[in-house]
């Protein structure tokens, strides 16, 4: 059982961050000491497609005795402001604000991320003043350049799917240069924001993060084999045995819910995530 409280947290960017706090009614023996989990939203359309799974997972954890926090970045969802008024630096600060909010509940704080929100989250964890117990990454994008490539491809695919004239990557990039933004699925991504995202890489943070935080890298897909292998972006790094002990790869034979047009649930991913927090 749990209760749900809604908060508008004043952010360091003078906006109000919407937070839904799913609070357990009683302490659970299986969970042990008090824990809080922050669900970090991904970017643009994937943010919309993550909402249902995030809420279901938050409720599941709250029922198991864990405080769970779902929030919207400034300019998105139920937080105040307009999408175009904020950038990646603002959203990083939003996450710090939500972390400080969670710290009032407990000092044992973990994160759940989806796709590119792994990039923002790992950036947070490597800060000296932030302590994160566990980080669960759902199908992470390992670098910002891949996210931008995905957005450009979506623009091209969108024209393809709607029977419009074929557009090329070169034309999309030229259009960004001329207009100063890329429009994908109703989201206007400024050229400045693109530049900020492009430089983000998991490999830049991972060694610092694994020194401090237990990481669970979850890859979904119905046709996956059960062998969980270290992803290429990590295999190129010199991770020590101590770091590798903190990294657990999970292969989850469930649908990639964030890729589906209709709201889709991945029950096995929910179960796997719960097991990370509830022994």
């Amino acid at each position: 059982m749990h209760t749900t409280d809604f908060h508008y947290l004043p952010s360091s960017q003078n906006s109000q961050i919407f937070i839904a706090h799913y609070a357990p009614l009683e302490q659970s023996e299986a969970v042990g000491a008090s824990q809080a989990v922050i669900f970090v939203p991904p970017f643009a359309e994937e943010m919309n497609r993550s909402k249902r799974m995030y809420v279901l997972c938050a409720r599941l954890l709250a029922d198991a005795g864990i405080h769970s926090l779902c929030f919207d970045f400034s300019g998105t969802g139920d937080s105040s402001g307009e999408w175009g008024d904020f950038d990646y630096a603002d959203w990083k600060n939003n996450l710090i604000d939500v972390f400080q909010f969670a710290k009032k509940i407990t000092s044992n704080i973990s994160l759940v991320t989806l796709r590119d929100s792994a990039l923002i989250s790992l950036n947070l964890i490597k800060r000296a003043d932030i302590q994160i117990d566990k980080c669960v990454l759902w199908d992470p994008i390992d670098n910002g350049d891949a996210l931008i490539r995905q957005l450009v491809r979506m623009k091209i695919a969108s024209a393809m799917a709607s029977d419009l004239k074929k557009i090329t990557t070169k034309e999309v990039l030229e259009s960004i240069e001329q207009s100063g933004f890329l429009e994908v699925g109703g989201y206007y991504v400024s050229a400045d924001l693109i530049d900020q995202i492009k430089v983000e890489k998991i490999s830049d943070s991972i060694e610092d993060v694994l020194a401090l935080t237990e990481m669970h890298w979850m890859t979904t897909g119905k046709s996956n084999s059960n062998s969980a292998v270290i992803p290429i972006c990590l295999s190129k790094l010199n991770l020590t045995d101590v770091m590798l002990k903190k990294l657990t790869m999970h292969t989850v034979n469930d649908v990639k819910f964030w890729m589906q047009q209709e709201v889709t649930i991945s029950p096995l991913l929910l179960r796997e995530t719960k097991q990370v927090f509830v022994s």
């Binding site: 695919a157 393809m160 799917a161 890729m259 589906q260 209709e262």
Partner: peptide, 15 residues
């Protein structure tokens, strides 16, 4: 296939 939207196309290409 109505489900074949731009994100699905990108997902298929990536897969």
């Amino acid at each position: 296939i109505p489900e074949l939207d731009s994100m699905a196309i990108v997902g298929i290409i990536t897969s």
